[in-house]
Amino acid sequence: MISFTKKLSTKFHFLVNNWHALDIIFQSPCLLCDAITLNKSAICKSCLADLEWNVTFCKQCSLPMNSESCKELICGECLSSPPPFKTCVAPFNYSFPINSIIYRVKSSGEQYWLKSLGLEFCRYL
């Protein structure tokens, strides 16, 4: 009979003494540029910085606005005909690559994007 206890204990010993090796084991390629990333969101930090974040936006509908001086502004469309909701949250502007990612999720069912974007949405909140 073959005994696996020696191999298991050796592997366990390696993982306990080299816990930083788990980072290497669980690394994944960035979904946008294929660079190696250790983020939980599977999008590397440089790609996150390159995404077009919604910085200046309408307080009610979250559409991008040109004014950078005040973040508490409401756009003219919301003032003239208020939408049926109080507020909307949109962390990214609807431009490349966010628009193509949303299209891929909806049309092709590529749902692996949702975890990464969901984590970034939670950080934004």
Score class of each variant (00 low, 15 high):
residue 97 P to D: 14
residue 113 W to V: 04
residue 86 K to V: 12
residue 73 L to C: 02
residue 76 G to Y: 03
residue 124 Y to L: 04
residue 87 T to F: 03
residue 38 L to G: 12
residue 100 S to C: 10
residue 59 K to V: 01
residue 100 S to M: 06
residue 80 S to A: 08
residue 85 F to L: 05
residue 63 L to S: 15
residue 24 I to K: 14
residue 3 S to M: 13
residue 72 E to M: 03
residue 58 C to M: 10
residue 82 P to S: 05
residue 44 C to T: 15
residue 27 Q to A: 13
residue 72 E to Q: 09
residue 41 S to W: 01
residue 26 F to Q: 13
residue 28 S to V: 08
residue 54 N to P: 05
residue 48 L to C: 06
residue 113 W to I: 07
residue 117 L to D: 13
residue 40 K to Q: 11
residue 72 E to L: 08
residue 15 L to N: 15
residue 2 I to P: 09
residue 4 F to R: 12
residue 113 W to S: 06
residue 42 A to G: 00
residue 117 L to P: 08
residue 83 P to H: 09
residue 111 Q to K: 10
residue 16 V to M: 14
residue 118 G to H: 13
residue 125 L to H: 05
residue 52 E to F: 00
residue 67 S to T: 12
residue 90 A to Q: 10
residue 35 A to Q: 14
residue 120 E to I: 14
residue 83 P to L: 03
residue 55 V to Q: 15
residue 100 S to L: 12
residue 22 L to Q: 09
residue 81 S to L: 12
residue 64 P to E: 04
residue 90 A to T: 13
residue 28 S to L: 00
residue 79 L to M: 07
residue 120 E to D: 11
residue 78 C to D: 05
residue 66 N to W: 01
residue 16 V to Q: 12
residue 26 F to E: 15
residue 60 Q to M: 13
residue 24 I to D: 06
residue 69 S to Y: 11
residue 27 Q to N: 05
residue 24 I to L: 15
residue 43 I to T: 03
residue 21 A to Q: 11
residue 46 S to E: 11
residue 13 H to S: 04
residue 76 G to D: 04
residue 113 W to T: 12
residue 89 V to G: 01
residue 69 S to T: 10
residue 80 S to F: 04
residue 23 D to T: 15
residue 70 C to G: 00
residue 84 P to L: 06
residue 71 K to N: 11
residue 30 C to G: 10
residue 114 L to A: 10
residue 83 P to F: 10
residue 43 I to M: 14
residue 15 L to A: 14
residue 48 L to H: 05
residue 43 I to S: 02
residue 66 N to I: 02
residue 35 A to E: 08
